[in-house]
Write a protein that binds this DNA or RNA. Structure first.
Lengths: 232, 232
DNA sequence: TAGATTGTTAATCGATTAACAATC
DNA sequence: TAGATTGTTAATCGATTAACAATC
C-alpha cells in the first residue's frame, strides 16, 4: 500500500509492463478523504447552475462551493473529470464523473431504524430521491408503531431487521433510535451485512473494522457553534 | 497574526514583560479547528463513563472517542484541563473545562426556521437540553402552520423573524426550510444579528464574513458512504 | 519504590494553495 | 493571436502520532 502510493496516479512502478494487466477501472486510486467529502458538494453546486450553462470553470465552481479554485482542480484531478484549458469543465460530463466516482451509478437500498420524529423526517427528506438512495425498510421497537405507514413506507418490527436487511439487500443503515439503542442496532446491522452506517443518535459507536460509520449529531454541531460564538 | 503564531502557547514574543498585560483569559489562544470539533465528542464520552469513576486516562477516553491517546492529550492541552501523571484526568474537572472552553457555561437562545417534519424532529431532540441550548422560537411561512404548537413551542410567522430574533436575543439559527428558502432565511438571520447558523437544508449558503455556518446534509453523507461502499 | 500516565517534542503525514507552463 | 483556464508542481500549512522524560 505505502509502496503503491509512491507512484503517480495511473502509473505502476518499474514492474515491466504490468500496467497492462490493470485496466483503469480496476486500479482503484484511493481518493483522499478530504476530497471525497467535497465531491458531493460539487455535485450539489452543479444543480445550482443555470441550465443554459454548458461549461463551468474551477473558479466558478469554487466560488459556489466555498473552496479555492486550485482545490477544485486538484479534487477533480483525482477523478476522471477533464477540463478544457481556457474553457472549463463540461457540466454534463463533470456531473457524470462525479456520480461515477461516488458510486452513484447504481442505486443503494437504505433502511431507517427508528420511526420517531427524526426517522420520519429523514424518510421524506427531499435529497434522497434523485441520487439513487431508496428507503427499502423502516423499523421500530414500539409495537404500537409497527404496522403504521410513514410516507408510504411500512414500519416493521425491529426483530425482523436481520431477515429484511438480507432479503432486500440493504447496504446502508440510518440509525435514528434513542441513544441507548444505537450500539445494539448498529451491531445487528453489521451482523446482517451492512457496511455503511449513518448515525443520527447522540451516541459514539464502537469502531468496527470494515464498517464506515458517519455521525450526525445536532448537539455536537451546536457546541462547535457555541465555541465560535464566544470567539467574537 | 502569523507572527503571533510563531510563539508557544501562553508565551509572547520578546517584547519585554508585555505578558503581564494579557491575563490568561484575555489571551484567547485559538484552538485548532480539528480540536474544537472533537471537544464535544469528549464531553459526550464522559457521560458514558460509570458514575463511580472519578478519573479517566487519555487512553480510556481515546478508546471511547475513537481517537489516538496522544491526540486526546494534545487536544486537552489546548484547554485548561490538567491531568495528573500516573492517574489521569479528574472527570468532573475535565467536564467543567470542556464546557468552559466550548462556551457552554452560559445558555444560548436558538431559533428553528421551518416547522416541517425536520424542524419538528429537531425541536424535541433529546440532546438539546442539558447543554444550555434553549429553543426560543420556531418559524414557518405556511399560514396554516403558524399558531400551532410543536412540543410546547408556538409556531410563529416568518415575517416576524427579525423582531423576535432581536427581542429574544437569539444567537443561533437552525435552518430547516426547503432548499430554495435557505439562503434568504440565512440572510435575514444575519441581518437580525445571528452569527451562528446550522443549516439542514440541502443548499450551500454563501460565505458571510463573521458568520459561522455549519451544514448538515443527509444526501452528502449518504454519497460519502456510497463512495466507501464501492471501495470494498 | 514500581507502575502508570501525563505533557511535550519532533517526526511524519496529509491537505491546501500560490504560481505558472501548457494549451484551448 | 490574446485571453482564459487547466493540470501540476512545490511550498506551506495544519493535523496526527510515536516516543519519552517528567512525575504522580
Amino acid at each position: 500500500m505505502r509502496a503503491l502510493r509512491t507512484c503517480r496516479k495511473g502509473e505502476t512502478e518499474n514492474w515491466g509492463d504490468s500496467r497492462r494487466h490493470y485496466p483503469r477501472l480496476a486500479v482503484k486510486n484511493p481518493i483522499p478523504s478530504a476530497t471525497v467529502s467535497r465531491l458531493p458538494v460539487y455535485l450539489r453546486c452543479l444543480s445550482d447552475l443555470p441550465t443554459t450553462q454548458m461549461t463551468c470553470s474551477s473558479d466558478q465552481l469554487g466560488t459556489i462551493a466555498g473552496v479555492n479554485s486550485a482545490q477544485v482542480r486538484k479534487d477533480l484531478s483525482y477523478i476522471d473529470a477533464h477540463g478544457v484549458r481556457g474553457v472549463g469543465y463540461d457540466i454534463d460530463e463533470l456531473r457524470r464523473e462525479l456520480r461515477r466516482a461516488l458510486g452513484l451509478m447504481k442505486s443503494h437500498a437504505v433502511a431507517i431504524i427508528g420511526a420517531g420524529n427524526l426517522g420520519t423526517a429523514l424518510s421524506n427528506y427531499p435529497g434522497f430521491a434523485g441520487w439513487g438512495f431508496e428507503v427499502k425498510a423502516m423499523f421500530d421497537v414500539d409495537p404500537s408503531r409497527v404496522g403504521e405507514e410513514v410516507d408510504g413506507l411500512l414500519v416493521e418490527p425491529l426483530s425482523d431487521l436481520e431477515r429484511i436487511v438480507s432479503e432486500r439487500s440493504i447496504s446502508i443503515g440510518i440509525v435514528a433510535t434513542p441513544s441507548h439503542a444505537a450500539q445494539d442496532v448498529a451491531d445487528r446491522l453489521v451482523r446482517a451485512g451492512v457496511r455503511s452506517i449513518l448515525n443520527f443518535a447522540p451516541a459514539i459507536l464502537r469502531r468496527m473494522s470494515g464498517v464506515e460509520v458517519r455521525r450526525v449529531d445536532l448537539s455536537t454541531e451546536l457546541q462547535i457553534l457555541a465555541y465560535y460564538l464566544q470567539q467574537d
